[in-house]
Design a protein around this nucleic acid. Structure first.
Length: 271
DNA sequence: CACGGATCCTGATGGC
DNA sequence: TGCCATCAGGATCCGT
């Protein structure tokens, strides 16, 4: 579920309700991607000041530090007053006096990491190399193009890498490249300023729309209140191999790039 | 050091 | 309540 829009929608659905809460207890289940980095009970009594997002990470600001959450490929959060007993795949319960934040993550690629501050080594290890926020003012077309010129890799791989711009996952990478008319296998360094500008706009449009709709999901995303994606953000190309392009009718193609599927229209998207 | 590939884990799906 | 192979939206680490 979680690309940037889903993470942002999740954040919006519980940030206000958890702000100001006191931590009553932290329970960790099976091991996630990384160790927590502290004893869970040391967080008891801490106050949750607010929730920010950086890329696909959620940052819970505590009076005593920072709790970083990542949903990985299969994670989702719920924030409820009285959650039931923890299920098989519920690997974190952050119990507060305002409700319990529960992480459900079958594949356990997600993470919960404590850091003493955003500038601490533990936090910098995860956040230090992230590119700019795609929906922020720092994401500028010309700078984006200049950065692309230094990369020989295929453009889709550059987008997924997150070192130039964060938050563009496998689905939205295909969608944005379609919107910009760029073949995913095009080498980043060969993209003109004009096309980079189109891609820049496409990334912002695709992600902003997905946030607006409430998190896309071609499957079963739901926010922390358990409201599932009304949406049906119509994918232009993702998951549509063999189906007619919505713009020109040509059959959509699927290829593998770095062990991930990529979808594109061979006519609308130029190398 | 930029790049490509392997890797962590579980569940769903489809072919046989 | 069949078995096996393949695939899944992420991100890091490692070898070249």
């Amino acid at each position: 579920m979680p690309e940037l829009p889903e993470v942002e929608v999740t954040r919006l659905s519980f940030a206000d309700r958890i702000a100001g809460a006191r931590i009553v207890a932290l329970r960790m289940g099976k091991a996630l991607r990384w160790p927590l980095g502290c004893e869970p009970q040391t967080l008891t009594g801490c106050q949750v000041l607010g929730v920010r997002r950086r890329g696909k990470y959620l940052l819970l600001d505590l009076d005593a530090g920072l709790l970083l959450l990542h949903l990985g490929m299969s994670g989702s959060l719920r924030f409820e007053h009285s959650p039931g007993e923890a299920g098989k795949h519920d690997h974190m319960d952050l119990q507060t006096n305002q409700g319990t934040l529960r992480l459900h993550d079958p594949r356990r690629f997600g993470a919960v990491v404590f850091a003493h501050a955003e500038s601490s080594p533990e936090a910098r290890k995860l956040l230090g190399r992230l590119g700019v926020e795609p929906l922020g003012d720092d994401f500028q077309a010309k700078e984006f193009w200049q950065a692309l010129r230094k990369r020989k890799t295929m453009i889709k791989q550059v987008l997924l890498g997150g070192e130039l711009v964060v938050g563009v996952g496998n689905i939205y990478a295909s969608e944005a490249l379609f919107m910009a008319g760029i073949r995913p296998s095009t080498r980043a360094e060969r993209i003109s300023l004009a096309r980079a500008t189109r891609l820049h706009a496409a990334i912002r449009t695709v992600l902003a729309r997905a946030v607006q709709i409430g998190g896309s999901t071609l499957k079963d995303f739901s926010n922390a209140q358990g409201e599932s994606g009304y949406f049906q953000l119509e994918a232009a190309v993702y998951g549509r191999e063999g189906l007619p392009c919505r713009a020109c009718g040509t059959a959509i193609k699927a290829i593998r790039q770095g062990q991930r599927s990529t979808f594109f229209c061979p006519v609308c998207q130029k190398p």
